[in-house]
Computed example of a mutant assay.
Amino acid sequence: MATEFPPIPLTGVPFPKAEYERRQKKVLNAMERVGLDALLVTAHGHLRYLTGYHGFGGYFAPFPLILVQGQKPTYVVREYEMQVVRAESCIDEIIAYTQQHDFAKVCADVLRRYGLQKRTVGLELGCWNLAPADVSALQAQLPELRISDATRVIASVAAVKSELELEAMRDAMTSTDLAICAFQQSLREGVTELEAADTIEREVKKAGGELWRWYSLSFGDRTKLPHGPPAHYAIRNNEPAIIEIGGAKWGYAAGLVRSAVLGRHPEIESLHDLAVAALEAAIAAIKPGVAAGEVDAAARSVITRSGRQQVFRHRTGYQNGIHWAERGNLSLEPTAADLLEANMTLHMPIVLFAESGHLVGCSESVLVTERGAEVLSRRPHTLYRA
């Protein structure tokens, strides 16, 4: 007697296929502008943006989506992952490789089929999930292939969000705001970071929301550790707390940084005021046509005028959306020349280093509009005092 199995719960792609086709067409247009005959997309966030599939199976070797003008997109994936890629992507043309060493040969075969073995092909050389050995192996298969760095091609397209994407970002921020509220309400003497995290996750889940899979939360002296995950540390009176967390919807994350003090902490309170002033200056500088470096300069000038330049040790912000952020995307940093456009979304964490070593700060995720910046959160970025 044959065993009957229950049906597999498939999530499918979150957006209509037409939305992905629109994105692919915009990328193809961008490729044409920079002189690429083909593009191998390997960054997980960019794969999800163009196909719906999260791309995490690509830990084994890259899962390139091959885009060629006039051809259907071709996904080259590990055979082990074929079923999930078919179920959770919008791509019909899927070609498999089995072992890690097969990756370059199978990719090369696809490029030969399209007559590209002597043409210019873009690789995302500045993104995660493409090792130098992968590039070398592909070049060995196709010695006359001209490889061009295409790190920014998809980033420049994905920076400008559609209405469907903005809806996802707003829904994600609803969960973020709920998480921040739960964090603040959990602060009492003796509560541990893990207990606060449990409260946050429970409240978001109860409301039907979702959190991005990673977040940082720390109390007391552990706030000296950037990006610290929650641990068994219990907060004491007159200690600070900091959280960086984001709700998620369909792979889109909307992050926020918020700080708090249980009782009083004059050093943290003073430095947080500076973080607020820098953040608000950066938000005020945002509008279409402004260079990313100008936004960074607006925040940095506030800190410079305070005479405490050493407290700010990173960029002002970055393009956000799918997968929180992707290496190689637009960055709000000194001298960055990228021009802001309407419907871009940005996360701007102003986190400062106190003399004591504690980290304190705040952030906003914002939408660039024709009039300036729309702050997506409804939670104030002032210091929370418990």
Rank of each mutant, 00 (worst) to 15 (best):
M344R: 00
K118L: 05
A325D: 04
V34L: 04
D273P: 04
G357L: 10
R78Y: 00
A43N: 07
I322K: 00
R146L: 15
I268Q: 07
V204M: 10
K26L: 09
G361Y: 00
G190T: 03
C181V: 13
L279H: 07
I235H: 03
A150F: 11
T42K: 12
Q185N: 14
W128C: 14
V84I: 13
E193A: 09
R78E: 05
H347R: 09
E326Q: 10
R258D: 04
E163F: 08
F60P: 04
A342N: 13
L178T: 12
D221S: 15
A282W: 01
A137F: 11
R113A: 11
V85I: 08
P143M: 03
D273R: 14
P64W: 08
G126V: 01
A159I: 00
W212Y: 09
L164F: 14
R22P: 02
Q69V: 03
G58K: 10
E203I: 08
R371D: 07
P62T: 03
R264L: 04
A260K: 01
P266N: 08
L111Y: 03
S186Q: 10
D92R: 14
V351D: 06
Q141P: 01
V153I: 14
E88D: 11
S363H: 02
I268M: 09
K26H: 06
A342F: 07
Y384L: 01
V110A: 02
E93S: 13
H44C: 12
V290S: 02
L40K: 12
A179E: 06
L194Q: 15
P64S: 06
A196K: 05
V257Q: 06
H347V: 09
